[in-house]
Design a binder for these strands. Structure first.
Length: 185
DNA sequence: GAGTAGATACTCT
DNA sequence: GAGTATCTACTCA
């Protein structure tokens, strides 16, 4: 199992959001492997995207979005939830990241059920905050490199049969941009 | 199955 | 001090 090369993330953020569909997130926790296929993503860009954290200027929080591609951007929201993003953009952009909204559990499902403290397999990782819980991703993982990393990385998974796009969820601006991508397999 | 309220703590103004 | 890229549990049907 090999993590995707850095070049993979040097891509238009919208294209990257689609390319990430079907890829596999691998998390190693306590010598146990947790993994899942990415089934839903959202693209967030820089000054051309009012819904993005990087729309205004760099701050301590959104710093990873401006940094090297292939790094993780984990942020905290609603007082109790983390969301997991992958930094990626073409070279002429200042910032950009892809929010992972949903994964399909593959390995370590037992462990994920323990992490989530629920028994319903369908609800184990079908939301941004759910998958971070299931994979034990927290602010500790903010700014880590996903390319040179044996504990948290992304690798090849399946090829999506079909990709659909729709407006992003839970935002109040730039809703005309259909930058939410779902995989149908 | 669909819709609503409440919890919660971090970040920026 | 206000807003937040959400989830769960509860209600009603």
């Amino acid at each position: 199992m090999k993590s995707l090369p850095r070049e993979f993330y040097y891509s238009n953020t919208l294209q990257l959001a689609k390319n990430l569909l079907g890829m596999k997130i691998v998390r190693v926790s306590n010598d146990k492997i947790l993994s899942g296929i990415i089934s839903e993503t959202e693209a967030y860009r820089a000054s051309d995207d009012p819904a993005s954290h990087a729309y205004k200027k760099m701050s301590n929080r959104n710093k990873p979005m401006f940094g090297e591609v292939g790094f993780a951007y984990v942020y905290f929201t609603y007082g109790m939830h983390f969301c997991f993003n992958v930094v990626g953009r073409s070279k002429n952009y200042k910032a950009g990241a892809v929010l992972i909204r949903s994964i399909i559990p593959v390995d370590g499902i037992d462990q994920m059920i323990k992490n989530r403290k629920i028994n319903d397999l369908k609800n184990i990782s079908n939301g941004p905050a759910k998958l971070t819980q299931a994979l034990k991703i927290s602010k500790e993982d903010n700014g880590v490199d996903l390319v040179n990393n044996s504990k948290l990385f992304i690798t090849n998974g399946v090829t999506p049969e079909k990709i659909t796009s729709s407006p992003r969820i839970g935002i109040s601006v730039a809703t005309e941009k259909k930058w939410n991508f779902k995989m149908i397999c």
